[in-house]
């Protein structure tokens, strides 16, 4: 595990310190009947040789981290100096690729996670109250969106919200606007991706909560009922506190999974309006013919730092538990 995961991270880090070679330029004098002109041309041979000699590119230090497509301190500073209002500053900053992607990733994570938690809990309670004979099939149906390949699941939805697809056409009909397209505006694209995210991850929280509901002590519930608690009060004061450890667990898993949102952007072709951190890395590596390893590496490292940042509370708690167990 160390070998296969730690090394690539190391490799990404090393790559992030380098940038690709400049092309080797040759200055040549071109003398014709109308006098001499100097032209610069690319010496393809020499460039190729140089690239082969050291495939990493030339050493750039942390330059890649600071350039326009990553942390972009210079641009941020500039925006701070130029713009008068805070919203103006924010707008400038979010136009930078890294911050834009960070913003989308965080928004996605921040909206999807709580909604999925709430809805999952509600549905779990609902299913728990169903008669036994339909419980099994309803769990079966619920599992589908979660286990189906993300790319495939989002494609299915994508076809449905297409202007000619069933949902897209219905929405056009409702708003009486034949040109309305969910793919055209940033806000709608974000909403679409978030709705997809909820659809895709809801089953997970539902299943975990449902399993948790099976362990709720019956005695406590009965006692509460005898004391005159309504069903709603039972849910809020008995069931939910019992599920708190589960809620922490689900939140953690959801945070991790939502933070790496990537496939829906590819299959919704939403990259014009919504980019996530994973998508930028993918795009850098896909750069046809000449992948930008350095840039991808830098974004990777920044993303990893983000993940560790997200996980710190959990890690600290685990460490405390572990120490307690040893004592």
């Amino acid at each position: 595990m160390i070998l296969f995961i730690a090394i690539p991270i190391g490799s990404a880090f090393v790559q992030s310190l380098f940038i690709q070679h400049d092309q080797v330029l040759v200055l040549s004098k071109n003398c014709g009947p109308f006098g001499c002109r100097e032209t610069t041309s690319v010496d393809i041979e020499a460039t190729k040789e140089l690239r082969q000699d050291s495939p990493l590119g030339k050493f750039n230090g942390i330059g890649t981290y600071l350039n326009r497509s990553h942390l972009a301190f210079a641009e941020v500073g500039n925006a701070w100096a130029v713009s008068r209002t805070f919203s103006g500053f924010l707008k400038e900053v979010l136009d930078l690729p890294f911050y834009g992607a960070l913003m989308f990733t965080l928004t996605y994570t921040a909206v999807v996670t709580p909604l999925v938690l709430l809805l999952g809990l509600a549905i779990a309670i609902g299913v728990n109250g169903l008669p036994n004979i339909i419980k099994g099939p309803s769990i079966f149906v619920s599992l589908l969106p979660f286990l189906v390949t993300p790319l495939v699941g989002s494609l299915i939805l994508f076809w449905m919200v297409d202007g000619d697809g069933i949902i897209g056409a219905t929405i056009q009909l409702i708003f009486n606007d034949p040109d309305l397209s969910l793919k055209a505006s940033t806000g709608l694209t974000w909403t679409m991706l978030i709705v997809y995210g909820i659809w895709h991850t809801l089953p997970f929280s539902f299943i975990v909560f449902y399993a948790g509901l099976q362990t709720v002590p019956v005695d406590t519930l009965e006692a509460a009922e005898i004391d005159g608690a309504t069903k709603w009060q039972c849910t809020v004061y008995v069931v939910v506190p019992h599920l708190v450890p589960l809620i922490t667990f689900v939140t953690l898993m959801l945070l991790m999974d939502n933070f790496r949102v990537f496939e829906p952007i590819v299959s919704f072709s939403a990259e014009a309006h919504a980019r996530s951190l994973s998508w930028i890395i993918f795009n850098d590596l896909r750069e046809s013919g000449n992948p930008l390893y350095g840039s991808a590496g830098a974004t990777s490292i920044l993303t990893i730092i983000g993940v560790i940042f997200l996980l710190t509370p959990v890690l600290i708690r685990n460490w405390r538990d572990f120490k307690l167990r040893r004592l």
Partner: peptide, 10 residues
């Protein structure tokens, strides 16, 4: 928790 793509880039 690591996004898979970060590893792929390495």
């Amino acid at each position: 928790a690591m996004p898979h793509i970060t590893l792929v880039s390495g």
